[in-house]
């Protein structure tokens, strides 16, 4: 397992894993960083270094679980990061997937009813994902903020652990979308358009799985510790 440290060059991180590009963007880091280290760039951008490392390492390594000391940063930072990620999905990835799919559908020959099914499936998925994101932003995140502000008066029954188990379906559907196209849909579409769609989809799949893992290994343990402190 490759663990990045504050002394690593930022450019080395990206070379090791291109999928980290949108991740560093979410911290407001832009390209053109010369040979500066993670530490230098974090200082320049006013980013909590240990938080940045926890995020990129969790993103880069599936088995990474941050040590307790790395979990000292405020959960508010995590929420900010997660909201940035949601924004990336809702404002960039989902519209992109949708327009690629529409494009593919309108450039298909006879027998495109099958792709019509894919579009229905995608629409349903998108709706569920948006609902999931709304639930997180309207229920889960405010709960965490309230908890930090010592305010337990609402949602007594809710525990952060309840939120952990809700990710699976959202991930399964991306898997299904890919497999349906790869295995079962008659190829009456423009191959290049379909490839583009699948490539966007696979990037998104990787990103959203890592996003869910960050919630599970960083946000949930952190909030559980606070819950324990406050509720005994």
């Amino acid at each position: 397992m490759q663990i990045f440290t504050e002394k690593d060059k930022m450019v080395a991180l990206i070379k090791a894993n291109y999928h980290l590009l949108p991740v560093i963007n979410r911290f407001g880091i832009k390209l053109g960083f010369g040979d500066k280290t993670v530490e230098q760039i974090c200082i320049e951008n006013g980013i909590d270094k240990s938080f940045f490392l926890a995020i990129v390492n969790a993103f880069h390594n599936e088995d990474y679980f941050p040590e307790q000391e790395l979990l000292s940063f405020s959960p508010l930072l995590i929420l900010d990061y997660l909201k940035q990620t949601h924004k990336y999905y809702t404002e960039y990835i989902l519209p992109k997937l949708e327009s690629q799919l529409t494009n593919m559908l309108s450039n298909s020959g006879p027998g495109k009813e099958e792709i019509g099914l894919i579009e229905l499936f995608y629409k349903k998925y998108e709706k569920e994902l948006l609902q999931h994101i709304r639930d997180e932003e309207n229920v889960v995140f405010p709960y965490v903020v309230n908890l930090i502000n010592n305010n337990l008066n609402e949602k007594r029954d809710f525990r952060i652990i309840d939120f952990k188990n809700e990710h699976t379906n959202v991930e399964n559907q991306i898997n299904d979308l890919r497999n349906l196209l790869l295995m079962y849909i008659s190829p009456v579409y423009d191959q290049d358009l379909c490839n583009e769609f699948l490539i966007t989809l696979s990037r998104f799949e990787k990103d959203i799985m890592d996003h869910a893992r960050i919630e599970d290994v960083i946000l949930v343990p952190r909030v559980m510790a606070i819950e324990k402190e406050m509720r005994g």
């Binding site: 229905l120 399964n172 497999n179 349906l180």
Partner: peptide, 9 residues
Amino acid sequence: IKSVSGLTV
């Protein structure tokens, strides 16, 4: 295929 809607398709 894992999800219900995927299986439906």
